[in-house]
Design a protein around this nucleic acid. Structure first.
Ligand SMILES: [Mg+2]
Length: 244
DNA sequence: GCGACAG
DNA sequence: ATCTTGTCGC
């Protein structure tokens, strides 16, 4: 078997890395920072997971209704896995599928949260900024761990935070969403400011450390992977969705 | 050169 | 992210 155009490169060539850096620079130049006029009732969330064996990126996007505390819209996307994970270039692995899932949403939303960094990135263009700018939609980076930057330990109570700093600039917020639990790394994606980021994320937290939009998207994507895996196994040969 | 390093 | 069940602590 020869490596076809759809097979995943084991290593990313230096030339492509340079191309990616140029792409991030262009997107970064289009980033807009502004205050959200209101904390939106409908907040979207997106996430992706990987099926290395099947060579697929499985993504989903959903809209969370803060008032009714329920998901009002759900969209998905499955695309070929093109690249391996390369630190600071996560978006080139996830963005295509995640972007498509967001575009498939039919219900309107005021802002979309991503499972990763936004401005808190070496070139200020993490996943949230990458997708937010390309779709020109308000976006927030909601990462579970740190990529770059330094910070003090936030207060132990829920709602407390400390600035995330890099190269003498504040790039995000280390936010404690739940008392006595590990904080999250929040940053600007696009068309929002840090004050809005903090308000939206805290307003989306219920009983968990991770805000609902991103937490539910993560769960959904795991279900999708499980289902797709079963449909392709020896046992799932019969059509799961028979047409009448 | 060495260690860090979103998901 | 992924490989994986029960167990410890607030
Ligand atoms: Mg994820």
């Amino acid at each position: 078997m020869e490596a076809g155009p759809s097979s995943k490169p084991r290593k990313v060539p230096p030339g492509l890395i340079e191309q990616w850096k140029a792409c991030q620079a262009e997107l970064r130049a289009r980033l807009v920072i502004e205050s959200l006029t209101e904390i939106p009732r409908f907040v979207a969330g997106a996430d992706a997971c990987f099926d290395e064996v099947g060579g697929r990126v499985i993504a989903c996007a959903l809209v969370w209704d803060r008032r009714e505390r329920k998901v009002v819209d759900l969209a998905q996307s499955v695309r070929p896995l093109e690249f391996p994970y390369v630190p600071t270039f996560l978006s080139f692995r996830e963005a295509p599928a995640v972007t498509e899932a967001i575009q498939r949403l039919s219900h309107p939303f005021g802002v979309v949260c991503f499972d990763g960094q936004g401005y808190a990135h070496p070139r200020r263009c993490g996943l949230a900024t990458h997708v937010g700018v390309s779709l020109d939609v308000p976006a927030i980076g909601c990462a579970k761990s740190r990529l770059i930057g330094t910070h003090e330990e936030p207060g132990i109570e829920a709602g407390s935070s400390s600035p995330l700093t890099h190269a003498g600039e504040q790039i995000g917020l280390v936010l404690r969403t739940r008392s006595a639990t590990k904080p999250i790394y929040a940053s600007i994606g696009h068309r929002v400011d840090l004050a809005s980021v903090r308000q939206v994320l805290l307003a989306c937290c219920t009983r968990y450390r991770i805000p609902e939009p991103t937490r539910l998207a993560d769960i959904e994507v795991a279900k999708m992977k499980k289902t797709l895996g079963f449909e392709n196994s020896e046992l799932g040969k019969s059509d799961p969705h028979p047409a009448p």
